[in-house]
Amino acid sequence: MLTPRRVSQVLMAAVVLLAGLLGAVAPGQAAEPAADPCYVWLEVSPGVFEYVNICPDPDEEGGGEDDGSGGNGPRCDLTEEPYDEFCLGTKACRADIPSTLPEDKWPPEETRPSPDHIFTFVQCRVPGQEELYERWRWIEPYEGALPGLGWQALGRLETPAFTMTFEPSGMTYVGADTRYLLDGLGDGEIIGSVAGPLQATGELSHVEIDPGDGSETIDCDPDLRTRACEHVYLEMSHEQTSEDIDGQPGFPAQARLVYDVTFTMGGVEVSLPGVPDTLESPWNGTVVPVGEIQALVRTR
């Protein structure tokens, strides 16, 4: 017969076993770091979740993100590739820049040390240790990373969705001046969201128009809302496969916007070698039916 004390011991063992089984089912969710403010629960790759430590190591405090630009020079050895990009304290590091993790997967904004910081994967060589320091974390991009961030900033520029029309509307004619107009260009300036410390701005330079009849592309004034760009078609479009909404065959004319791009950091313009300084919108267009005016010749 089991004594009351023995029954209590059996019940306690059962509770411990059950807790162990539950922990085996979801070890990550039972992990102690969940209550630590230095750890956040993130999806670091599709379907893969981790507790990520976002707090710096002790040796990084007080200038731990020194990239060698300060008066005292770097605190780490940046002579061994690929760990030659920047220092975290005494660790020599490299990072994925731009970050491979989409921004909507980054830790909460209140954990971000500053607007210039990005959240990315970092690998470092630690003095006196063979094992690498590898961690997802906030870093402030070092100077040499700016071109990489420049591509990211460039990708955040969005060109407007515009429409293209022509005059005379409905149909133009062989030998006549056909005028193209665009609507929906805004004020000609586009501004992207920041990528780390960088921001890209585009200023509309000109409009390229392909008349669709095999002739060369035309460079036109950027303000096609009020000033038209003209072309003369030299043949009819009756054999074209493209059709307008009324079923009339026409030439597939199209246009795209070309912007001059500048990059700024803290409001100051910077040069980024290797990063394009122009941006082209996708092509958008309209079908232009071209007919022929028949002349009636009378003899006296």
Score class of each variant (00 low, 15 high):
residue 295 A to P: 07
residue 81 E to K: 13
residue 89 G to C: 10
residue 137 R to L: 06
residue 29 Q to V: 12
residue 263 F to H: 11
residue 283 W to M: 12
residue 104 D to C: 02
residue 110 E to Q: 11
residue 54 I to C: 10
residue 105 K to P: 00
residue 274 G to R: 06
residue 189 E to C: 00
residue 266 G to D: 11
residue 60 E to T: 02
residue 28 G to D: 13
residue 272 L to P: 08
residue 266 G to L: 12
residue 234 L to S: 14
residue 159 T to C: 03
residue 30 A to P: 01
residue 24 A to W: 12
residue 12 M to C: 08
residue 299 T to C: 08
residue 91 K to C: 07
residue 48 V to K: 14
residue 188 G to V: 02
residue 205 S to A: 13
residue 196 G to H: 12
residue 97 I to Q: 03
residue 117 H to P: 00
residue 88 L to D: 08
residue 166 F to E: 08
residue 224 L to N: 04
residue 111 T to G: 09
residue 296 L to H: 06
residue 209 I to S: 04
residue 25 V to D: 06
residue 65 E to R: 11
residue 102 P to I: 11
residue 243 E to N: 07
residue 299 T to Y: 14
residue 244 D to W: 10
residue 109 E to H: 10
residue 225 R to T: 12
residue 64 G to F: 08
residue 202 G to M: 07
residue 258 V to L: 15
residue 223 D to T: 03
residue 11 L to S: 05
residue 143 E to F: 07
residue 129 Q to M: 15
residue 108 P to M: 00
residue 26 A to R: 07
residue 208 E to D: 13
residue 156 R to M: 11
residue 83 Y to L: 09
residue 271 S to V: 15
residue 1 M to K: 00
residue 162 F to R: 02
residue 200 A to E: 06
residue 251 F to E: 06
residue 221 D to L: 09
residue 84 D to I: 05
residue 119 F to E: 04
residue 45 S to Q: 13
residue 31 A to S: 14
residue 53 N to L: 05
residue 159 T to L: 05
residue 290 V to W: 04
residue 38 C to L: 00
residue 169 S to G: 06
residue 260 D to C: 05
